[in-house]
């Protein structure tokens, strides 16, 4: 049974997440019973989708490393596709975009064989230099600069950044109680926890807008409260799920808190520029895949490199 290979701290973390989801579902039912006239469809869909995401993720993590790497590769594909579908590209970029998609299996192959040197330069060096060359061969110079910029940014965000989640699984295990999946659970949970904390602090105390032009709902109170809560909690969770000690966990929490906010508002700016609210409709109640992945795009590489520097 592969399912029995889950290390104790990782399975405890998974149980805790399931517990939180049960709590969310129960509160939703309670809310609906209290205010029968209010429409909670959106909230219901949102929580339902969370169950699916969490279920799928745990299943994948519990299976084996290769399956999990393929899963994150597929996530990169969905994210890149969604991003390239909403940003302006030229018809003549189609073939270049096809090559950009091909970078995904290659990048995740480096992850699967644990070749760190190649994993870290493949997209910033080789893909970066190759895509404009492929564009030159097509020969459409009208709008060349803009397309080259958009394409490279897309591949960096959706493939390079996201693939850091998968590389956590290939790192040597230094905390046998949590295993490789402990790192992934810590990153995903802390990132999501930070999103929720910033939202709740902002809802309760939010007064001073932080960047009204991009996200009118983001406030200094929400930002600071969220980052502090995340930092403190990460200090407790890190020794259980990662090789980091408590004070290193605080730093990791601070990094994730700050980076999560930045990822969120960077992707918000993209959507605002395009005059759209959601980037897709893949996840009911959430929007597109980018609406869920936004913070993670920033937290994954930054957490990874902090961890890699401190513990490896």
């Amino acid at each position: 049974m592969t399912a029995l290979n889950i290390p104790p701290h990782a399975s405890a973390a998974m149980l805790a997440v399931v517990g939180l989801l049960l709590l969310a579902s129960a509160s939703r039912l309670l809310l609906a019973a209290k205010n029968p006239s209010t429409d909670y469809t959106e909230l219901r869909l949102r929580i339902q989708s969370w169950w699916w995401i969490v279920g799928l993720l745990f299943l994948v993590l519990a299976s084996n490393t290769q399956t999990a790497i393929v899963f994150f590769g597929f996530l990169s594909f969905l994210a890149l596709k969604e991003f390239l579908s909403i940003v302006p590209t030229r018809m003549t970029d189609r073939r270049v975009i096809f090559w950009a998609y091909l970078a995904i299996p290659v990048q995740y192959y480096w992850v699967s064989i644990g070749w760190y040197g190649m994993f870290i330069i493949f997209i910033p060096v080789y893909v970066f230099l190759f895509l404009p060359m492929r564009m030159v061969l097509i020969g459409d110079t009208q709008g060349f600069i803009r397309s080259a910029g958009i394409l490279h940014w897309a591949v960096m965000l959706m493939v390079f950044a996201v693939s850091h989640i998968a590389y956590l699984l290939t790192l040597p295990v230094k905390n046998p109680n949590a295993g490789a999946m402990g790192l992934v659970l810590f990153l995903l949970f802390t990132t999501q926890f930070n999103d929720v904390c910033q939202y709740i602090w902002g809802k309760c105390l939010g007064k001073h807008k932080i960047i009204p032009k991009v996200s009118p709902n983001k406030t200094w109170e929400g930002f600071v409260g969220g980052v502090l809560t995340t930092t403190v909690c990460a200090g407790f969770a890190a020794p259980l799920l990662t090789p980091l000690n408590q004070s290193q966990g605080w730093v990791a929490g601070l990094i994730i808190g700050l980076a999560g906010f930045v990822g969120d508002v960077v992707l918000s700016s993209v959507k605002r520029d395009l005059n759209i609210k959601d980037s897709g409709s893949l996840i009911p109640g959430h929007g597109g895949i980018l609406d869920r992945l936004d913070s993670l795009i920033y937290t994954a590489p930054l957490f990874f490199h902090f961890l890699y520097y401190v513990a490896y």
């Binding site: 596709k81 390239l84 590209t89 018809m91 189609r94």
Partner: peptide, 19 residues
């Protein structure tokens, strides 16, 4: 909208795009 980019008239290569 969008499928004209995934597979436009006169092209045989399908490039994935949301529609």
């Amino acid at each position: 909208h969008g499928l004209g980019r995934a597979l436009p008239k006169g092209e045989a290569l399908l490039v994935p795009f949301n529609c």
